[in-house]
Design a protein around this nucleic acid. Structure first.
Lengths: 354, 354
DNA sequence: GCGCCGAACTAAAGCGCTAAAGTCGCGGCG
DNA sequence: CGCCGCGACTTTAGCGCTTTAGTTCGGCGC
């Protein structure tokens, strides 16, 4: 077996084209200083040999690393449960790939480890920017990143302290729509089975849920927080439905919870939508294929990912002032059978009992 | 705002510790050539200032890039549908993170673009190795990678031409078990709704499906290939069940197809498992939470990912001869209600009609 | 004919690190 | 007593690229 030939360097290309390294560098980077004729020749040689600049060398000489970082702080086995995240990442990638930006991925198990990863990446020059996901209540990460001076964009904020820009998601309006929809179809007591309460977006949804129900004068509005697992969704459902004045509609945070919930409802001898209506906060193929098909909030995770990537690239290019938030469009509520019940629509608002 | 201080270099650390750069380098890399005393001092200084070597510089001086590449060649919007992939990636990451290996991710839309990405990564020195997924029938990638000389490990092979090592998955045995299970519970005509037929693993499953059914003397065994979408799964189901001698059991390739299938079965006025039994090739929370709960093949995608990562690291360390295949353990078939039918078990094998 | 200018190049330095090749002092040995 | 060898360093070169400071040379004005 012949020794693998040393990889081609700029020097080789320059020699082959009969010019200096500098000339070759100018030509290949589209800088002035070489005649068109020479430039063409150099490019031809480089192309012919399939030359690609050595990444490390380029970075070392002040170049950008061409890499965006993403670290996920969840217990590793949990990450894979819902499809939102993968769809989001794919959307991110679709834009990044086009711009020849790579995605550096890391899964860690705590927010502290995540911050440490950012520091290391920053100091080692591994990434040009990072995307921050899963913002928590009282999250130390935006501050940490701002202090580090590592360009960052929050996916799903906004940052309560406004130190980092965000592609924000409005969780309140969709929740308001869901609650209104349920109210308009005759429900007076509803419940929300949500994920981990320390997530900022969950906290916002919970708040909007209560506020919305209260404003519409509903008599019951309960929230049960789960750990995003099927079993705890089933348990929450059982608890909620076993009370005497049980809610007539349940809102689930994602497809995993909803599937578990619907199963549990059936097991309790109740029917959907006749006895209990169901709404899911995520429209996946699962939602529409279930029996009955589930009313769902149709968020476009892929588009969200590409929006984040697009904004991030603008920030890196300096064409975005890297401050302030952009807002994702409010998702549509796709009404399906699971919330099509025969309750009498609310009559004229009755005088409150008090 | 004070100008951000220049990042600390090895030179700074060396100066602060009162030694030469080389001494510092030796100390920080655990190489001989410095006294314990000096080494301690250097380490203390580096630690105190939170020094981390500049990645690009390290790579440039012959170091490994500390990065593993993964490129996914699917139409971007398709990637997010099934959970297997994300769980696999998380498993990968869990091991890689521990070893401070980063994962470089790229989504492209064709196998050709994928090969081009490998070439660029290789020449630019961006990755030390890559993981190859979604092997196709007549896949050009293993050969391309072998020719490039870029260390690679196939997740889910084996490579038909044996040019690359693989962490192989046995698709035949699980399929044999599924078919046998169905046969033993009294089915004589079964069908398999699979994904894209050009995938190598799908081709193997299809083959095992037919072979198994034939060996057990079943009178019907049909296969319908889909594009992994809900709608085409529903269509396949409809077609299969509308024939006069319709199959009494359906096998689906993943949770998306199964959910769509079960919905369609119900829409056709048939019941599961009474009229049609269902088995899914993937046990997710969805499978167990559905009504009825689905009999499913319990593959551990997370463990698969970590096995791949472990083997890859061994290859990079040179502790693995980087040839030959390791085999994932055969997944268990979790029997649930969806395949618990009341058909009479097969009597003594009857004489073939011929 | 001479100086000057700009275009088209080249030489050399430097990014942050590693590694091969010194240097220096000291104990041991014939 | 001179020399060898060795441990503990330092000096120097070099990884592949960019960039700053030259260098050359042809043309142009006067």
């Amino acid at each position: 077996m012949p020794a693998r030939p040393r990889r081609l360097t700029l020097r080789d290309i320059a020699r082959l084209a009969g010019v200096s390294e500098t000339a070759a560098s100018f030509a290949l980077n589209g800088k002035p200083g070489v005649s068109d004729e020479t430039r063409r020749r150099i490019l031809a040689v480089a192309d012919e040999h399939g030359w690609v600049p050595h990444h490390a060398a380029k970075v070392l000489t002040g170049g950008k690393s061409g890499t965006v970082g993403l670290v996920i702080a969840r217990s590793a086995r949990d990450v894979g449960s819902e499809s939102f995240f993968l769809r989001f990442m794919t959307g991110l990638q679709s834009v990044l790939s086009e711009r020849r930006q790579a995605l550096l991925l890391q899964v860690v198990d705590s927010v502290e480890a995540e911050i440490e990863t950012y520091r290391t990446w920053q100091v080692a020059g591994r990434v040009d920017a990072v995307v921050l996901v899963d913002l928590r209540v009282d999250d130390p990460r935006p501050d940490a990143l701002a202090d580090l001076g590592l360009p960052a964009l929050i996916a799903g904020g906004p940052d309560p302290r406004r130190r980092l820009p965000a592609v924000a998601i409005d969780d309140r309006e969709p929740m308001r729509r869901i609650v209104t929809h349920l109210h308009d179809t005759g429900h007076d007591s509803i419940a929300y089975v949500c994920g981990a309460g320390e997530m900022l977006h969950i906290a916002r949804r919970v708040d909007a849920f209560h506020t919305g129900a209260r404003e519409l004068g509903m008599s019951g509005h309960m929230v049960m927080s789960t750990d995003f697992s099927s079993s705890s969704a089933a348990k929450a459902t059982r608890l909620l439905l076993s009370s005497d004045d049980r809610p007539t509609a349940l809102v689930y945070d994602n497809e995993i919870l909803a599937v578990a919930g619907v199963g549990e409802i059936r097991r309790l001898g109740l029917a959907t939508p006749a006895d209990v209506c169901v709404v899911v906060w995520e429209d996946t193929p699962i939602a529409s294929a279930m029996e009955p098909p589930l009313t769902a909030l149709s968020r476009d995770a892929f588009a969200f990912g590409s929006d984040v990537a697009t904004r991030l690239i603008a920030i890196l290019d300096g064409t975005d002032e890297a401050t302030g938030d952009t807002m994702e469009s409010v998702p549509e509520l796709i009404e399906r059978t699971s919330s099509r019940c025969e309750r009498t629509p609310p009559t004229e608002p009755t005088e409150p009992a008090s």
